[in-house]
Amino acid sequence: MNPDILILAQETAHPSRFAEMVVEGLSLGTIYALLAVGFVIIFKATQVINFAHGALATMGAFLVASAATIIDVPGRWMPSAPDWLVWALSVLIAVIAMAGIGMLLERVFLRPMVGEELFAVAIVTLGLDIFLRNYTNDWIGPQPRPLGDPFGAEVVDLGWVSIAQTEIAQIVVALVAVGAIALFFQSRMGIAMRATAFDQEAARAQGISVGRVFSISWAIGAVLAAIAGIFISLFPRRAAGVDNTTAFFAFKAFPAIIIGGLDSVVGAIVGGLLVGFSEAAAGTYLTGVSFLGTGFAGIVPYLLMLLVLIVRPYGIFGTEEIRRV
């Protein structure tokens, strides 16, 4: 029987498929949004396109796996504590470590490049990606590493659609993270960051420690990447744990950023969700449509990106660069 007709036939028979699609879009979209927001914060503050974002995500997930299951920290010192608390502490340790790693990378590899051409700096991060990704993958080894989370494979059945606990957690965490960032931008450091993004030299002249702004922005970017990496590596998507394919997710964050505009946090969130939903919709309604072939859903974000760029070369929320001689 022709698979096209078959799948379309099931389509009409299952009204809940639309709901499924919404859940998937939200689940993918929040991951992309988390990656994209971290990316945009780094770009806004330091003018660096961070191609190593996927590697940071993998690293974050692997640190959680290490802390929670491989070396069992802090679980080994608190045997009677509830599982969820121990795991939350492991995640906290991993996230703090990632903030440190982010700062370290900025200080060692990117500070020397301040003032260089933007694309030269971008290529440094491309090199950084190759380096970090391979190094992390070597640590992970050939087998996936489970993160040891307390959610397990639990699923909440809402009647018309079922959703994994981890996906609910992910959406909640993403909302909290976005709220925290909104608050951060109101803080003293946040204002300093916005000033630096506006004009590095002027900010410096006002007594803002631009170096510190750079460090903090990389710390935030790395933490957000790590959180995204952790949720990628949990139950429904990487049920067996973090492995060497986690970094590929970051390639979908790029269209999200461009659609939203390189320097807009709001744009990153909108772009991330848009990419997630468009992928889920294309996956649900277009997979198996023979003339579209294999993997059409995967390039929908890129097509969307090209479309947006033709109409608005600086993305939906991006600011147009003023070009002077």
């Binding site: 269209p255 390189l262 995967g298 990106m305 090209l306 760029l309």
Partner: peptide
């Protein structure tokens, strides 16, 4: 398209091109 966008945006347009190209070659 590539001329319309500048600098880093161009890098992403061409990145998109690679993925779209891979899709076409594959199919």
């Amino acid at each position: 398209t590539a001329v319309r966008v500048r600098g880093l945006y161009l890098a992403f347009v061409t990145l998109g091109l690679v993925f779209v190209g891979e899709y076409i070659f594959r199919n």
